[in-house]
Amino acid sequence: MSPDKPAYEGTVVLLGPQPRDFSDLAAAVEDLQIDDPIALITAGWQENERHDGAIKEALNQEVINLSLYDRSEEVALQTEDFVAAWGMRQKYLRRLQQFYRLRLDVIDDADNSIAVRHTTTELLEEQLEITVSQLRHLDEDHLARCARRRARFAEEWPIDNLDSLLSHRRQIAEELDKCGAMILAGGHVVALLNRLRLFDVFSNWKERPIIAWSAGAMVLTERIVLFHDSPPFGKNLAQLLDVGFGFCPDLVALPDLSNRVHLDEKAGIGRFARRMAPAHCIGLDQGSRIIYRDGEMVELIDSARLSEAGEVQWGWRP
């Protein structure tokens, strides 16, 4: 990436979870005044990918669902060896994620033990710095390992002779050529990320607008962070999943923030914000909107930023 030129020179609108009538999405699309058809990606909905009637109804203009999930199922049927190898890669990445998570837990345990000791504020602050530094190191290491594994797979499994996949890529590129904007729905973030990569959706997208919500917003950032403060068991420690497509730099997108994060836990929020710095940790609740233009965050509506002091800054402006 050249420092003088943003990775993406168009407009990106990130939204939070959608109401049933998709009125937030409809309003965002209307603001962009798009005349051409709109490409829709609902691969995060997995087997429910085609249940997009309410979106089409809300937008009241031509919408082309690229059906990435269904296409990936077709590719799977026709490229058995490739898909088996892909499956092995995914299994490896899942294991990598588990082991990374185990290591995060150990750091967190130590941090919790130290945080309750009766000692000086200065020493505790120094210890917190160590914790943050260790977490950041593990985060970076994890991303690097994920990238290496993906690069190895690309090298071992070139797609030049995968007719089925290439054919779908061509079809998708043709559909995208007709479109003036793209919508990325939320859902299963890995299902979405993998299919966007498999079909190389963004390579020729250029500067046309993208509107995305929840998981769709997460994959457009540089780093995808998984989080939930009320898991059914175990700890609530956030973890990195992988790199995203980087359309929205310096942002950690936190969909459904108010429901997924205990906003009164100041220490945890502060530590998380420091761990992710210099990226801004910004919540996307229902009704929230973050707007990027030419790779820069230019506007936030009804969003909150998590500060390094542990504050939840509603109304924060970039």
Partner: peptide, 18 residues
Amino acid sequence: LREGLSWLFPGAFLMMYE
């Protein structure tokens, strides 16, 4: 049941952002 079942069979909830 929630803790037991989700520990024995962890789901993809951490991956879901609707």
